[in-house]
């Protein structure tokens, strides 16, 4: 089962950017998330990132912070997120990546987490505060259960770190577009396209760009440079504006169609 690699390979052969929407699991309730994931898959998402709500999301901007608080208030946690994934998996084939902080996994136990995540149908796991320098056992355990551990690089990562991360990541490298937290930005940073193109060559891994990617022109700018883009806060803020249910599905569908130039 290499759903992530296969999905990125299909995009590469089609000569297009993989579109990877991010939503916070259980924001504002689990049923909305189920509907959103189905809709996103129908709209052509190549992969979907599900955020695991955490009480202290120190790498997130206000939009995702508030989404995490809404999901926590709805009773979500790592265990209920995995239950949700298992339900999603019954009808959705698209690769699913969990985006999480480390403590919920540590608390559950890395082995138990890997087993349950794999059984639920998770494909990859990105832990924002677990650099590959820490806990090699984590990486081995995930890989052994068929999960892809995904690590990040940032503009200020040294060459040595680029080599380290490339060596630890098979599916793709998540490239943080700029120093800072998650959130909608007007412009992509100058030089990003060149950085990504260079990284893709030197690291010999697919490169997916996230943090601040929020507009149609951002996607167009990265076309041919990156393998994929993650769009998060631009979708999550719709939930904040309209609440859950059908309004969220319609609102986010419109944003996605705009991003993909289908409206």
């Amino acid at each position: 089962m290499r759903r992530i690699a296969d999905a990125l390979e299909v995009c590469r052969q089609d000569g297009r950017l993989a579109f990877i929407p991010y939503i916070t699991a259980g924001d504002p309730d689990p049923e909305t998330t189920l509907d959103l994931v189905r809709m996103l898959a129908d709209e052509g998402a190549d992969m979907i990132e599900l955020g695991v709500p955490f009480s202290d999301p120190l790498a997130d901007g206000v939009t995702n912070q508030r989404a995490a608080m809404r999901a926590l208030a709805a009773g979500m946690n790592l265990a209920t997120v995995l239950d949700l994934v298992a339900r999603v998996r019954k009808t959705v084939k698209v690769p699913l990546v969990l985006f999480t902080y480390f403590n919920p996994i540590y608390r559950m136990g890395v082995e138990a987490f890997a087993r349950r995540a794999s059984q639920a149908g998770v494909d990859g796991v990105l832990v924002i505060d677990l650099p590959p320098d820490e806990d090699k056992r984590y990486r081995r355990t995930l890989t052994a259960t068929g999960l892809d551990p995904i690590f990040m690089l940032a503009p200020n990562s040294s060459d040595r770190r680029r080599e380290l991360v490339a060596a630890c990541t098979e599916a793709f490298i998540y490239y943080i577009s700029r120093a800072g937290v998650t959130g909608v930005r007007d412009d992509l940073p100058a030089g990003l396209r060149e950085d990504v193109a260079r990284l893709r060559l030197t690291c010999n891994r697919p490169v997916v760009v996230g943090f601040g990617v929020s507009r149609r022109e951002h996607l167009l700018a990265l076309e041919g440079k990156a393998d994929g883009v993650v769009v998060g806060s631009a979708l999550v803020r719709v939930v904040e504006e309209v609440g859950g249910g059908a309004a969220a599905v319609t609102g986010i569908r419109n944003v996605v169609r705009n991003l993909l130039g289908r409206s």
Binding site: S55, N103, Y106, R107, D129
Partner: peptide, 21 residues
Amino acid sequence: GAPGVFQGTLTQVLQDAHGNI
């Protein structure tokens, strides 16, 4: 508390059963 990873370090942390602080 119980051991956990919080704000950059692995240490004793007051947390719930799911690892929220």
